[in-house]
Simulated assay, not measured.
Amino acid sequence: MIGEREVLTRAQLMAGGLSRRGLVRALNEGVIVRARRDQYVSAAAPSAVVQAVRIGGRVTCLSLLQLLGVFVFANDVVHVHIPRGASRLRSPESVAKPLGARGRRRARLHWWPLSATPPAHSACTGIVDALAHAVRCQPPRQAIATLDSALNKGLIGFADVEDLFALLPRKYRVLRSLIDGRAQAGTETLMRLMVRGLGHEAVPQVHFARFGFVDLVVDGWLVVECDSRAFHSDWAQQVKDRARDLELAKLGYVTLRFTAAQILHQPDDVLAALRGMLGAGRRKPPPRN
């Protein structure tokens, strides 16, 4: 009836074959939700969609990217694009309440014009506009990690990256050369940028014939792995990780592992560890096979 990221008016529902009685039944049975006057969404819609429509706009920026599985460092508010000239903005909690101070603490409003008008039924902005909003909403390193993630997931291509930066103020163009879509996770991008900040070269997703890819190879000899709980918490996977480290050591590589939590929440400790390891002396890169 209504997609999870769609918003329809009563007239659109009727045009789709729903009768007045059917509309009342769908509301009473909790199949659809009246988010605001003459704006209906699916009961299965994510809370960000319901809140954005209720406020009076579309989901964008970090909220939309979270729905798409793109890396976002942290976000606990709904990001909403509001058309210029919009009025009667409502609280994300209740359409009966205006968007007061409490509601604004739970929402981030984006007012700048969109580069492309979304379909009338869409409750979300386009991906390029959402990413442009996200660049302006995050610190530079986190913004780069978000763009890397969108590239890696195939949600955008490098041509879209050029379009995206054309939407942004000139000061953001310095970030363009730092984007690399090979990273499989946002933590890998953050680690790559840490290494680069220390003056060293980090190559993402390097392939070894014996066992596949490693997250980063720094200066040709140091392998850095960024372990997440989702893929490295069970003992069988940890045994597999140790076996990979053993094979790398046989080839002359040193392996340094960090958890995602360390990279995200203890960056100073991670940087100190990198300085200590890399400062121990540059090594001749071993052959990769």
Rank of each mutant, 00 (worst) to 15 (best):
residue 241 D to W: 10
residue 212 G to N: 11
residue 164 L to W: 04
residue 242 R to S: 12
residue 233 S to E: 11
residue 220 G to R: 06
residue 185 A to M: 06
residue 203 V to F: 11
residue 224 V to W: 08
residue 150 A to V: 05
residue 194 M to G: 02
residue 194 M to T: 04
residue 174 V to N: 01
residue 162 E to W: 10
residue 185 A to H: 08
residue 183 A to E: 06
residue 198 L to N: 06
residue 153 K to D: 12
residue 188 E to C: 01
residue 187 T to E: 02
residue 201 E to A: 10
residue 167 L to Q: 12
residue 170 R to I: 05
residue 238 Q to G: 10
residue 227 D to E: 14
residue 164 L to P: 02
residue 204 P to M: 06
residue 212 G to Y: 12
residue 194 M to H: 07
residue 239 V to Q: 15
residue 221 W to V: 01
residue 207 H to P: 02
residue 236 A to H: 13
residue 176 R to S: 14
residue 229 R to G: 09
residue 235 W to F: 14
residue 160 D to K: 02
residue 150 A to T: 07
residue 235 W to G: 04
residue 157 G to P: 03
residue 174 V to R: 08
residue 211 F to G: 11
residue 155 L to R: 10
residue 234 D to Q: 12
residue 215 D to C: 11
residue 149 S to H: 04
residue 208 F to T: 02
residue 195 V to L: 01
residue 184 Q to M: 09
residue 239 V to E: 13
residue 213 F to I: 04
residue 159 A to F: 07
residue 192 R to V: 02
residue 177 S to F: 07
residue 170 R to D: 03
residue 190 L to T: 06
residue 179 I to V: 11
residue 155 L to N: 02
residue 191 M to W: 03
residue 164 L to D: 00
residue 188 E to R: 02
residue 156 I to E: 00
residue 154 G to V: 01
residue 241 D to Q: 09
residue 182 R to P: 01
residue 184 Q to C: 05
residue 181 G to E: 08
residue 199 G to R: 06
residue 176 R to L: 15
residue 163 D to G: 10
residue 246 L to G: 08
residue 176 R to I: 13
residue 235 W to S: 13
residue 199 G to W: 06
residue 237 Q to K: 12
residue 232 H to Y: 10
residue 233 S to D: 14
residue 188 E to V: 00
residue 237 Q to E: 13
residue 224 V to G: 07
residue 159 A to L: 14
residue 154 G to L: 08
residue 252 G to S: 02
residue 189 T to L: 02
residue 201 E to K: 13
residue 220 G to K: 02
residue 188 E to D: 04
residue 172 Y to P: 01
residue 186 G to H: 05
residue 218 V to Y: 03
residue 208 F to V: 09
residue 250 K to F: 14
residue 155 L to F: 12
residue 240 K to S: 11
residue 183 A to N: 06
residue 241 D to A: 05
residue 172 Y to D: 06
residue 183 A to R: 00
residue 202 A to K: 03
residue 172 Y to M: 04
residue 220 G to L: 07
residue 207 H to S: 14
residue 194 M to W: 07
residue 159 A to W: 10
residue 212 G to V: 04
residue 228 S to A: 14
residue 166 A to C: 07
residue 239 V to Y: 13
residue 220 G to W: 09
residue 177 S to H: 13
residue 253 Y to G: 03
